[in-house]
């Protein structure tokens, strides 16, 4: 068996409830392997701890038990081999597009002329050419997420961690961005771990969909998506696609209904 690019080994996360003081298990022994160049999606009902899991992989949150391995080496904090793309707007409003894209490079002390030049190429790759000197507020939501993605790509990570990056976009923009992401993934050749609550987004993007159960989050199943690439958007209406969607929905439905009844999602972890 080849060495995995990224490995999560028995990740457990427990919270102390701030008010009651009681202990609460959010993630229960998550195990996951990502091969080099693979695109994997994690789906699960709301409140199953998907985002917390991604934050643990990214080194922003320390798990109660278990470990994350990159290329076989354990990870304890943010690593330059990983870069995160967040759902929420996280661009510096006082920096221009290009200033935001080179921000990660700057923080890692790698803003060499060569890296800056490459950042210029990434601008074109994510379709932002001509917008380098715009400020974030002058861009649409979809464009802002392109900047977010470009900022992550600029540090040339081996693995991209994406936390529902398109959730705040309108339906049409989201579909176009999914297609764009696949093109960028093919051109840039990265390993991607993508978290979403949308089953059809996960199937459209992924080689493999990891289905989490509701609280506490556990890996319920892994579904291999054997649809050919490149995938046109119309593939979402093909029989095979719908078949996979049905199967994953079947796995999630009970948990999703329970999450709906019990309401609240788990409290956001403070990084």
């Amino acid at each position: 068996m080849p060495r995995a690019k990224l490995e999560a080994d028995g990740i457990v996360l427990e919270y102390q409830q701030p008010r009651t003081g009681s202990c609460f298990r959010a993630l229960d022994g998550i195990r996951l392997r990502l091969e080099e160049g693979e695109f994997a999606c994690v789906v699960g009902p709301s409140g199953c701890g998907k985002t917390s899991f991604l934050h643990i992989v990214g080194g922003l949150l320390r798990p109660t038990a278990g470990r994350i391995l990159i290329g076989g080496r354990p990870v304890t904090g943010p690593r330059p081999e990983l870069a995160m793309v967040f759902q929420e707007p996280s661009l510096l409003p006082w920096r221009t597009v290009i200033g935001n894209i080179t921000y990660g490079l700057e923080l890692q002390g790698r803003a060499t002329p060569e890296a800056i030049r490459r950042a210029g190429e990434i601008v074109a790759l994510v379709g932002l050419a001509g917008f380098e000197s715009h400020y974030p507020h002058e861009l649409s939501g979809g464009m802002q997420q392109r900047v977010n993605l470009a900022r992550a790509l600029a540090v040339d990570p081996e693995v991209l961690l994406m936390d529902e990056p398109f959730a705040a976009l309108d339906a049409q923009t989201r579909e176009l961005m999914q297609q764009e992401l696949l093109r960028i993934w093919r051109d840039a050749g990265k390993t991607v771990l993508f978290v979403t609550h949308q089953i059809n987004e996960a199937i459209y993007l992924a080689d493999r969909v990891v289905v989490l159960s509701g609280r506490p989050g556990q890996v319920k199943a892994e579904v291999v998506v054997d649809l050919p690439r490149p995938r046109p958007l119309s593939i979402k209406r093909q029989a095979r696609f719908l078949e996979i969607e049905d199967r994953i929905w079947g796995l999630i439905e009970m948990d999703a209904r329970r999450a709906l009844l019990t309401g609240t999602s788990i409290p956001a972890p403070s990084a």
């Binding site: 990214g58 943010p78 995160m84 967040f86 707007p89 996280s90 510096l92 990660g104 700057e106």
Partner: peptide, 19 residues
């Protein structure tokens, strides 16, 4: 949210303060 993004790139306290 800005702090979290900076942390994800391994920013130090000084860098967070400055940027």
């Amino acid at each position: 949210r800005l702090l979290r993004a900076a942390h994800s790139f391994g920013a130090s306290d000084l860098q967070i303060f400055r940027t």
